[in-house]
Design a protein around this nucleic acid. Sequence first.
DNA 1: ATGCCGGGTGGAACCCGA
Length: 262
Amino acid sequence: MRIATWNVNSINARLEGVLAWFEAAAPDVAVLQEIKCVDEKFPTEAFERLGYNVAVHGQKTYNGVALLSKSPLEDVRRGLPFVVDGEVDDQARYIEAVISAPIPVRVAGIYLPNGNPLGTDKFAYKLAWMKRLQAHAQALLTYEEPLVIAGDYNVIPEVEDVHDPAAWLGDALFQPESRGAFRALKNLGLVDAYMQADGAPGGYTFWDYQAGAWPRNNGIRIDHLLLSPQAADRLNGVTIHRDVRGEEKPSDHVPVVVDLAL
DNA sequence: ATGCCGGGTGGAACCCGA
């Protein structure tokens, strides 16, 4: 079973290229981030024609996530639980479902907050969101089942994951607090699929639109798939579809696909 | 290069992304 994650930077602006990629790559499951539309504006029928079941957690203008699967979706959750009662969150950044394959797998799609600039409520929101994610991941891990938490984490885990580390020292994606929270998440018992399957430096998944970042390969690795032990034990490989970045009207992120023996 | 590009909104200029 192949499970993909892709920040598409507006599903409707990107639809033609996204559908072409889905026809060619044909992942069994995919999570999309930054769809930038409400549920009713998501091109559900176009994906259904390709054989996908569709679950959407959208919002107007910003954020928005979707989960697609050729097998039926069960137990769909939209939004992370709150750690403290009474908290509110109007940003659509989390979707989760159980894929009813012969061996079921729970797949979560996340669009983790960017957090820039530092010293603002945006960075505090990022760290608070990561705490909520950690609490929920800890709960899910108690099920001891195949689990994949995939998406745009907006965290550069290590210096090997960035072409020009010095340029990112003041950025929320490369702060010790952000990297520490990502490590804490992994320390619950989750495995970074790319690091287990490959681990080569420079496995970038994002290149800025500006300043010739793509032709200069000035990239960062921020799109990750974290696996529970039951999923990691079935890991066949990970593929970063970096060529997609060079196509017409690309997203600034490329798809990352994990292959699990499920 | 704390916005050079690019998308969305709304109908110009501004918010947001990483």
